[in-house]
Design a protein around this nucleic acid. Structure first.
Lengths: 216, 216, 216, 216
DNA sequence: CATGAATGAGTTTTCATTCAT
DNA sequence: CATGAATGAAAACTCATTCAT
């Protein structure tokens, strides 16, 4: 019960109308989907895991796909929330003199978010290739909202001479790839290795910074 | 027919005992798996697409999973082949004085390989999370074979003062992430964008090199 | 609300203990049953249409079938009421010298009743084949009550030389068939045609009369 | 087995590609649908009755509705076949000098057809109210093909002075209603009564003829 | 009285796999 | 070797009915 609350508290925290059973269903679904994938998880399995009748699932979610969406959508929403704050630029100006500072803050903040919601992240990464609906959501939010903000940011730091003269798209892509590469290696590919997160993130950041900083 | 041959010629080229029907089955399976995922593709669908009877599939592959493995395994084998040649180190010494040269060669070579076998790459990336068997293959080949080779390489170039003083693992991870990040963005996430591959790879490499090169 | 009252006012007029919600349930059930048939209508659908909770239906009607019966039964009762008045024969003697007059009165009276309660008629006609209970009700009322009365009537008019010398059963059957044939064609099979009811009923009656009148 | 063959031999006679199992499915479906109605018959019940696996049904018929259509459609086709012969009019001129002769021939021919395929007729009559698809089929065939032919016929006999001067539509409706009224009463409503078919049809025809013949 | 969440048995449908031809 | 009809277990989903609030 505690674990379960942890699992969903951050993403579904203000969903007050969630029944106790509904919460159990969500938790069971998250665990199952993350474990075996959406397509290979049966609703009967979810029901059993949640300790509810199979019909109960369909009372709350019209279809199995609905259940998937209702799980992933809030995750995406929460993930991008920090990027959508209106005065991000202003905040940046004040708080992060150096691109490195911004990167470090971002890295720590979003990486810890993902780690807190690791199963959901798994599901997102695993199901995006198969769910056009998720792709749409992803592109709509990530591509149009976050990306343009990042572009502004990159231009901002470029103007301050802190970034190498390459297209923003490339800088962003390499930066994000490196971060996600770390996340995926750490959590999905080789979770059994004993990672020293602090050191690893620090070194990854250093590499990125090294890469995007202009040589005098 | 031509297209189909292209699809499988590189990976299955020396599989001489493949009957015509078997080839059709493989092609149909590759297309279907890449499109909708292994779990969501039915054998009847593959049979229809291949123009054979359902039973024919099971004459050649004991189970559906067998079919998947028989498709992905050769792909992995071909992918890692260049890394496994015995005298890789020697070759490197002679051919690539600079890490940058090596990286560029690697990048071009393996990226073009993946692009030639894009559907198979898709399947590999998509199914790895769900197929422990694939994970085992992946880890066995990539982790133990390629990775140790890469470690040697990194140490080699480090000794020559061409690489920053960070753990080989980090350098490799960031390098590989950036490459795969490009591949995934280019081919899976935003295939509709009009990419200038030459420019993009060049800039990506420059960023990587910049990152891993020590500042004097 | 007005429409709905029209729908049920005639049949359920003196059912004073019907709550507002109950009325809504009945109306919703009538509409749904008529539209898609009893078996294909779900109680949840009825509840939604009626704007009540699903449980409310079962508070008033023990089962779904109960709901059906409680709808159809009063309809049958009202339909046969005129035939059951005790002194029907006397009335006839006085009012309808000619069989034709009787037929015309009957026709107009009962047809207009059915048209006012068309949905209920639909349900009755549609469900009789599937509901033995309804069949029993139908046979009990129609067959034993109405039919014997009709037999008397036919004999009465036969004695007056107004009817051809055929078995009462045949005369009744053809007469009733022709009337119902009209009703069904008009309302169920081809409701989209622009019928001139007055003309049609008149001609139908003329045909019937012609058929059952003896030639000199 | 014999019974079953009787059930389907006339309608599905030239459907040579019907498997033995398929025939059993059709027979079981016809019996079940006629008994309890389409909506209240489960496919598992049909499978059990047919002695096949439930999956077998869906191998031959994509959906349950498909099964229904594939049963009813040929029945309609066979039923209307005699009306669609091209030279119906010519045949009539020669064979049936009197409308009465035609009516008698028609009556006997089609009534015996329906009686031979009584279960199918039941299904058709019972399901038409619920299946828009069937309604379309019915209207298309009956309304446009048979009806216009009947209109010609009525006009033909009217010109010969054998029919009363009422609209063809009315004459047809009353005639057909009387016939179907007999069929339904005899077979569906009161099958337990001991009908003397020969006498009954004869008397019904006499009533109809009486009705549609002009008085001098 | 009314609600609506919950149920579990049942429904239609799918699908990997087998096997007689 | 190839076929495709047949299977039966399991999938997603429906629904009449119950019951705590």
């Amino acid at each position: 019960m505690n674990d379960q609350n942890n699992l969903i508290e951050e993403i579904f925290e203000n969903d007050d109308q969630l029944t106790e059973k509904q919460k159990k269903i969500i938790v069971a679904a998250i665990e199952s989907f993350a474990e075996k994938g959406y397509a290979s998880t049966s609703t009967s399995e979810i029901a059993k895991r949640a300790g509810v009748a199979e019909g109960t699932i369909f009372r709350h979610y019209k279809t199995k796909k609905d259940l998937l969406y209702s799980i992933v959508e809030p995750m995406i929403a929460k993930f991008i929330a920090p990027f959508v704050i209106n005065d991000m630029k202003k905040v940046l100006d004040q708080d992060y003199e150096q691109f490195e500072d911004f990167l470090r803050a971002m890295f720590e903040n979003r990486i810890s978010f993902i780690r807190r919601n690791l199963l959901l992240f798994r599901i997102l990464v695993q199901e995006i290739p198969f769910q056009p609906e998720l792709q749409k959501m992803f592109k709509k939010h990530i591509a149009s909202k976050i990306y343009t903000r990042f572009e502004d940011l990159v231009d901002h730091y470029k103007a301050k001479g802190q970034l190498v003269d390459l297209p923003a798209s490339t800088i962003i892509r390499v930066t994000v790839s490196s971060i996600f590469g770390y996340l995926i290696a750490r959590n999905l590919l080789f979770p059994e290795i004993n990672w020293d997160d602090e050191v690893e993130t620090e070194q990854t950041i250093r590499l990125i910074i090294n890469g995007v900083s202009p040589r005098e």
